[in-house]
Amino acid sequence: MAANGKNGKEVVIAVRDIVAGFGETNVLNHLDLNVYRGEVLGFVGGSGAGKSVLMRTIIGLVPKRHGTIEVFGVDMDGASDKERRAVERRWGVLFQQGALFSSLTVKENLQFPVREYLKLSQRLLDELAVAKLEMVGLSADVQDKFPSELSGGMTKRVALARALALDPEIVFLDEPTSGLDPIGAGDFDSLIATLQRTLGLTVFMVTHDLDSLHTVCDRIAVLADGKVIAQGTMETMLASEHPWLKAYFHGKRSRAVEQGAAAVHA
């Protein structure tokens, strides 16, 4: 069983002392991070800070130079192919650019992972594809479109639906709400909240969307200089004196959100 964190919650992703980078430079520099079961972790940092690189390192796409990564208590380096595949089946990934399979239709994209892992009837597969599409706020008519025929926001939604196709326990989301209209982004946030409540989903979400950070994230971690420089709840972030955090959470753009949130709470 996975180690428990100091607050008694189960740690599902344990990142220890990670170094990763390209060529001469190290993007991640001795980084440590815990992700607990059932939480929505919002990950923020400047453009090019290495958020996507961290996500790709955890899921094993970027080779690391130092450190260990444990997911569900399985050390991803020491794991056999079979163990690793079992872990991979339990997570879903939404890439920053969508990464839909361009030669499959939307429906086939959603069915692809399901078909590989579960032997279901075609009827059920079709129904589930429609259900997943509608859950992410798309109508059933897009199911026969090809990814190149989708708008940017639709691509994001389909990619989210595909990440959720197998009802994973962890989802990695790289900027899921960028490119969505505010209503769509709000729906997205409430979908994530629903899934977290009902399925106990753990969410690792890279985002710049202050609304999402306010409404769905249980905890926020900040990446700068290749390290996690701060983590905690929204209140901790707002109270922080760190100049970058101050600029991020108290900047011009965040003030409006704060006021909105305050108005809602009042």
């Binding site: 079709d126 899934l195 409540r197 009902t198 399925l199």
Partner: peptide, 16 residues
């Protein structure tokens, strides 16, 4: 705790 999920699928239209 499953109510929310059930509501989500409840809104799904019948298959196209």
């Amino acid at each position: 705790n499953y109510r929310g999920l059930m509501d989500e699928v409840h809104g799904v239209s019948d298959e196209a």
